[in-house]
Simulated scan of single mutants.
Amino acid sequence: MTTLRARDAGRLASAATALVLLVGCSSTPDDDPATSGPAPSSSPSDPAPSEEPAEPDPSEESTEEPTEEPTEEATEEATEQPRPISLAALAQADLTGGGLRLGAVRERTATYTSYDVTFRSTTAGAGTAPLRISGVLNVPSGRGPFPAVVLAHGYIDPAYYVRGQGMTRERGFLAERGFVALHVDYRNHAESTDDPRIETAVRLGYAADVAAAARALAASREVRVDPDRIALFGRSMGGGVMLKALAADPGLFAAGVGWASVSSLEGQNFDHFQRPDAPVDALRAGFRGRHGLPDEDPAFWRGVSPRPVFGDITEPVLMVHGRFDDTCPPPWARATQRALTAAGVDSTLEWYDDGHAFGPAFVAAMDRTVRFLRARMPA
């Protein structure tokens, strides 16, 4: 597509170097009775979000990492070829996507139709066929071309995950307001193809899948999407996926949104979510000797984190976070937004009096998100 960013023909790394992934973080699945339900058909006026506390959060010192000056060793490392499992390798890979196919109709309303869909994503390794990724697509009523939003859901155990789970409310809300909304079932989820190397990296394959979703929408002849108005919206784990995709594929999306996002430092996510639940020997065995734990191989964990490469992001970013989030600590959102701003990214952080799953503040936060998307993707 001429409207998507062209790849340098001389990029050396293949998709095989960057499409392995490890599941991490947690978000509340939208089949939880406390957080599920159809998207509201109308919404009240959006009250101003809560102001960030004037006093620093007492937990901030323990959850933010200090800024480090690059060492001579780190500078030399940056001039070498990127590690095979790294965000730099993903950025050099030939990320592909297309073949969007509409399947069964899931739902028809006065404002949109919902379909089961599949599309192609980047391969799982050298010599392998493109992965088939499943998902759910909401298409507004009308002729289009429509702006579109790719949805990157939070963590739900793939063994129990079902197609379209995790952002049902957001998908319906967006479609009712004129956005095509494509919920991506990452590789190894629902009817998507399994990537056998899922345990050897940190969600890099998920970032490749949401990038493939954008390309599939832009190339579709069945759904009229404006290829210059495609945004990426992730929640919880998906907020980290969003930041990785923007950094790896700058110019592909028009904007990024992250709700209740994980940390932009993967070592921090590991220490918060995985380390407390398993003995060190079991954690090491899970990585099959490919790399060490965060305190043993900090360079690897920096390499799979989006924060060190925020300067590569060209799109505006909206971060939305609950002041009472006890899953992804609020100081993570502050640290990410400050790092985005320091890197020159047009970024905003909005606060709401809510928890991780966004219950009472859902409509207000979605109204704010829609205003942001419309301002950044004008017709």
Rank of each mutant, 00 (worst) to 15 (best):
E80W: 04
E350Q: 13
L12P: 05
R290N: 04
Q337I: 01
P44V: 13
G10W: 07
G37A: 11
A175C: 01
R224K: 08
S27E: 13
V184D: 03
V210I: 04
A285R: 10
D30T: 05
P53T: 07
S43P: 04
E76W: 11
T71E: 12
C328V: 13
V150A: 02
G97L: 00
S62G: 05
M319S: 12
W351Y: 12
G178L: 14
L4P: 02
A214S: 04
S347L: 05
R177E: 08
F287V: 11
P250A: 08
R106Q: 10
A245S: 11
Q268T: 15
G154C: 05
L102F: 03
T79V: 13
P308D: 01
L204S: 09
L373K: 05
S114M: 13
R120S: 14
E170L: 12
S86Q: 02
R224D: 15
D8M: 10
E315H: 00
A285D: 10
A278Q: 15
L246W: 09
V202D: 07
L21C: 15
A39F: 12
D295G: 04
F233D: 11
A343N: 04
F233N: 10
S220A: 08
T122E: 01
A88Y: 05
A54W: 09
S59I: 11
E51I: 06
G166H: 09
P227F: 06
A278F: 14
D32I: 13
A181N: 08
C328K: 06
F270G: 03
P250C: 11
P306K: 04
V149C: 07
A208M: 07
S134K: 07
A379S: 08
M366P: 00
P58G: 08
G99C: 09
G258Y: 02
V23H: 12
R334C: 02
F146P: 03
H183R: 09
R374G: 04
D312A: 15
P279C: 03
Q337D: 14
E76G: 02
A126C: 09
V149N: 05
A245E: 07
S27W: 10
R177V: 08
A231V: 06
A282L: 03
S41A: 15
P308T: 00
V223H: 00
V320A: 07
G251A: 05
D326A: 15
S59N: 10
E77F: 07
A282M: 13
P294I: 07
L204R: 12
A13K: 13
D271Q: 08
Y160V: 14
L4A: 02
M319V: 06
A152H: 04
A357W: 08
R83C: 02
E52L: 10
V23I: 12
N269G: 03
A129R: 15
T193H: 11
C328P: 06
Y352E: 12
P33M: 15
S42M: 13
S347H: 14
P294A: 08
G144V: 08
R83A: 15
F233I: 01
S347R: 10
S45G: 10
G24F: 13
D353K: 15
L19H: 15
P279F: 03
G142V: 12
R284H: 01
